[in-house]
Design a protein around this nucleic acid. Sequence first.
DNA 1: TCGTCATGACGAACAATGTTCTACTCAACG
DNA 2: CGTTGAGTAGAACATTGTTCGTCATGACGA
Lengths: 249, 249
Amino acid sequence: MSVDPRRHRAARHAQPAARPTAEPAAGAAAPAPRKRPITVERITDAALEVVAAEGYDALTIRRVAAVLGTGPSSLYAHIVNKDDLDDLLIGRLHAEVVLPAPDPAAWREQLVGVYGQLRDLYLRYPGVSRAALAAVPTNLETLRVGEGVLAILLAGGIDPRTAGWARDALSLYVAGYALEQSLVRQRRRNEDQEWVLSHDEVVDRFAALPADRFPHTRRHAAELASGTGPDRFAFALGLLLDGLRPAAD
Amino acid sequence: MSVDPRRHRAARHAQPAARPTAEPAAGAAAPAPRKRPITVERITDAALEVVAAEGYDALTIRRVAAVLGTGPSSLYAHIVNKDDLDDLLIGRLHAEVVLPAPDPAAWREQLVGVYGQLRDLYLRYPGVSRAALAAVPTNLETLRVGEGVLAILLAGGIDPRTAGWARDALSLYVAGYALEQSLVRQRRRNEDQEWVLSHDEVVDRFAALPADRFPHTRRHAAELASGTGPDRFAFALGLLLDGLRPAAD
DNA sequence: TCGTCATGACGAACAATGTTCTACTCAACG
DNA sequence: CGTTGAGTAGAACATTGTTCGTCATGACGA
């Protein structure tokens, strides 16, 4: 039974009562174990390494264990299961988000900045946003980012209930956007699937649709396939944020 | 090699050249095969049955085969792989969406109606929205719904490029919303996981956060956890749609 | 009417996954 | 020097998607 990693998970989701990690003073109590013991941090590092290099689909317990030079069972002394590993990943990602001090005059730009960071993190680790969508919303680092976003919204004059709902919608959209974008890029890599289409092919395909059943798609094929990812992202975020304006004026 | 189901998949994604399904006139050419042969339609039916009853996670090839009273390998004469099955599912779901004739005066309500249908379909089959997020956007039925949405937006006076981007954002949000909602309900069912929280517990947990690091989350715990699913859905959809207004006026 | 053949169904099997069981190592402590 | 106990690791199990070779079965031509 040993230390039971479930306790550790619970600690990551509960309020930080005392010391979050309780790292030794580097040389005092634990004078450097000879063989680089497996820790939750090292597991998370290895997992992110795998995801960055090969995508979230390649993230298996065995793959992570191989990176650490061990077998799959060795990880289960530190993590509860694969869901727990996902949780660690999105926690680590959210931990990297830097939150600005809320500025009532610039709440909109600040939110674009924060969610832009999240988007970039998601895209740097292709497919993790799937884990983010499935994640339990009580992870401590996720809560930290949520609190920061809430602070910005409230500083902007948005009433609390609206702010909460808007935050949910924004987070949902960003995760969904990153997931879709990752899938597109992944498909572009697997060119062995002959029915995968490039950008131009999509335009051609749209334009080749029967005019009787798909008049608009056909007519505006170019516009529909237009716009890089960031453009669409900024557009959607703008829609969501501008809708909040009335409450602030 | 036989008929190669890849051809069928390609047909489902290509333009409908001639007959979409080519169903026999019931008694003319094919006078009722004695043993109910396995067809793509029956596979899709069985798969949806499984998802409706046990959720998308329970959707395995073997499970579907069992519903049809056969072994897993029998399905591979009709589908390419599991991704193909996912594609069939979301195609069938989109086929059930009824599209209104575009009314320039009611484009907003019409869109709420269409995406409400999609949301209800997703929620009726818990978890399928995951497949929808990963789906290839060239599925014929998906294109049909997309065309319908586009028609409504254009009738509302939205310019084509904005309409296309807005459509993407809306579809993304609806799929993400349904996925999140399905996960919440699924978690609520698996009560054996002790760290899963009910609504009230979430409020308590928020209110119990340390006030120094989570002041806003703590203070507005009630508002943050407030609102049923439909409320939040309507709110987010409203944000996205109202942002389009200026272009229409 | 009989033989041939192609289509599709099926069982067994394979590789890969998450997870558990049990044995083992090895530093710390009496 | 012996004990202990946490952390490690290898083997194994159940379940997944997928493929291979074989078999039934209905259609078609002589």
